[in-house]
């Protein structure tokens, strides 16, 4: 089973006619052209590895996103569902600037505080929100473009999975 018979190959097999007769022409038997292939080691994100044949000369391919850490392939994994996509680092930069107040707000909107996330008491939430709004306003006054900021703040809520 391992050693598959080469019958399933796309080679130009000779069709020997049943009626044997002399032919005057000659058919060129072409050498099949195949690209050079290497053996490559693929390392998935959970550390599992496998070898495969590829045209790429890189000896190792290390994947960061694959079936082991994608929620589509792991629908029951709560851990993966909570991971927010922030590949460009925009959420991180936003938080460094404006704090995490908006995360809580979006959580409350969606009303699905998942387990493993800290829940902030209600009064403190409002406090932090007020802080946030005032600070945003101040900053906007300084720079004179408040509208753009607010929109960004709305977009990057945690419950919305960090859309770009």
């Amino acid at each position: 089973m391992a050693l598959m018979r080469p019958s399933l190959r796309p080679s130009a097999t000779l069709q020997t006619p049943h009626i044997h007769q002399q032919v005057r022409h000659a058919t060129l038997l072409k050498r099949p052209k195949r690209p050079y292939t290497f053996t490559q080691l693929i390392t998935l994100s959970d550390g599992s590895t496998f070898l495969h044949r590829t045209t790429s000369p890189a000896p190792i391919y290390k994947s960061t996103k694959d079936t082991k850490n994608n929620p589509l392939w792991n629908p029951s994994s709560q851990k993966l569902l909570n991971v927010e996509e922030d590949e460009a680092g925009r959420l991180k930069r936003f938080r460094a600037r404006f704090g995490r107040g908006f995360d809580v707000e979006s959580l409350e909107e969606g009303e699905e505080a998942r387990e493993g996330e800290e829940s902030v008491p209600r009064e403190r939430q409002e406090e932090s929100l007020l802080d946030m709004i005032s600070s945003v306003g101040q900053e906007a006054e300084k720079k004179g473009k408040a509208a753009g900021k607010r929109e960004e703040a709305k977009k990057s809520g945690k419950g919305k999975g960090g859309q770009k």
């Binding site: 598959m4 399933l8 796309p10 693929i42 496998f50 694959d66 079936t67 994608n70």
Partner: peptide, 19 residues
């Protein structure tokens, strides 16, 4: 066919589709 097919499919499923 055969080996190429299996390698291609496993590459598509394990590496490309999740990305």
């Amino acid at each position: 066919y055969g080996e190429n097919m299996y390698h291609f499919l496993s590459k598509v499923i394990d590496v490309v589709m999740p990305k």
